[in-house]
Simulated assay, not measured.
Amino acid sequence: MNPTATAVRAGFARGWIEFRQLFTTGPDLIGQFLMPAITLATLYLLRDRSYQGTDLSIAELALPGLLGSIIVFNGLFAVTNVLVLDREDGTLLRAKTAPNGMIGYFIGKIVSATGSVVVQVIVVLAAGMVIIGGSSLDGAGAWATFAWVLLLGLLAALPVGAVLGAVLEGPRATFLLTMPLMGLVAVSGIFYPITALPGWLQGMGQAFPIYWVGLGMRSALLPADAAAIEIDQSWRHLETAAVLGTWAVAGLLIAPVVLRRMARHESGSSMAERRDKAMQRAF
């Protein structure tokens, strides 16, 4: 039997087990759905406020952005946090000692992270359509757009999360990472049209995947005439696919190199050194 194929199958099995644990453990469920629930409650209060004279409410415009933020933000952190924590407690080191264990480990993390994000998106979409209304996936074209934006968004976010998880040290570093990411959310027009921002901020926001995933989600969920409030009054599907595809290809090329380097340097002494640093910070 091919050892690599065995490791791949073990990785999928591991990912499925971890995925089920995420949705059968109370704290994990709260961690995944608390912020989306709070955001949905806020949007519910804004459901009757229209955006600048349009027929769309602020809540209807923001719901696709919420889905986009879940895809990018949660997809990135799902891998980053796990890698950092597994390096801290020795899980990664134990995986390294097994034959082809790193292959199974990384496949398992990708499977569980992808499954988690997809379920979150589906649940939040369903809840949003019920309590906010106005959004719909009308026709095969809208469903196809929703699917390819979701796929490309994950392919753009997950490798970046793997790279960050490989280079960051300690949970404190991942916590500090949230601040620049929240700043990026603010300039990405994820919850409102980016045309409301100054031109230089528009350019900055368009350099990152989160804007394009939000735009793609709006194109799938909102009526065609809603594109009038976007840049060039267009959903820009070709540009969306190009930018997300570029991030995905770059991430898929860089992440394996960084992860292999991280795995080579993973040892008992490096793990002990990280623990000593953590103890020094604690005291």
Rank of each mutant, 00 (worst) to 15 (best):
M217S: 00
D55T: 15
K109R: 15
L259C: 07
V160M: 13
P256L: 02
V187F: 10
P223E: 01
V124Y: 00
I71H: 01
G216M: 06
T25L: 13
F19Q: 03
A59N: 12
L29A: 14
N2G: 09
V121T: 07
L152K: 03
P198M: 09
E273Q: 12
P64S: 05
H265R: 15
T80L: 14
I194G: 07
A282I: 09
G199L: 11
A196H: 03
A142D: 12
V72A: 04
L34W: 13
N74H: 11
V8A: 13
T39V: 15
V111K: 05
A248L: 04
L184K: 01
I38Y: 11
L152Y: 01
S270N: 10
V243C: 05
I71T: 07
T39I: 15
G199A: 14
A196Y: 00
Q206C: 02
G65K: 03
V167L: 14
A226C: 06
F33W: 09
Q120K: 14
T114P: 04
V130L: 15
T174D: 01
V163I: 15
L67R: 02
M35H: 01
A278H: 08
I254H: 03
G68E: 00
F146K: 00
T25S: 15
L43D: 05
R9A: 12
P171Q: 11
F283P: 07
L184W: 01
S116N: 13
I107W: 00
L150F: 02
G205M: 03
A207D: 07
A142E: 10
F208I: 10
R281P: 00
P99D: 14
S112H: 10
L177F: 12
G245C: 10
P171Y: 00
W148S: 06
I254L: 15
G15F: 04
A241M: 12
P180E: 06
V124S: 02
E88Y: 11
G245P: 08
Y192K: 14
L221M: 15
R87M: 07
Q280N: 10
R172H: 05
G15W: 05
A282W: 11
A196I: 13
P198Q: 10
L222N: 03
A241C: 06
R9T: 10
Y51M: 09
S267D: 11
A157R: 03
G53H: 03
I131W: 09
Q202H: 05
W235M: 00
L22Y: 04
F106Y: 15
W235A: 04
I17V: 15
G183S: 10
A41V: 13
L184H: 01
N74R: 12
A41Y: 13
A278S: 14
A113M: 08
L85M: 13
T145Y: 00
R9Q: 13
V167S: 03
A95R: 07
P3R: 09
I190T: 15
R281C: 02
L259F: 04
E169K: 14
L253Y: 03
L93R: 11
S219Y: 01
L201H: 07
L34G: 06
A126R: 00
S269F: 06
Y192D: 11
A224S: 09
L93Y: 08
Y105F: 14
L244V: 07
M1N: 06
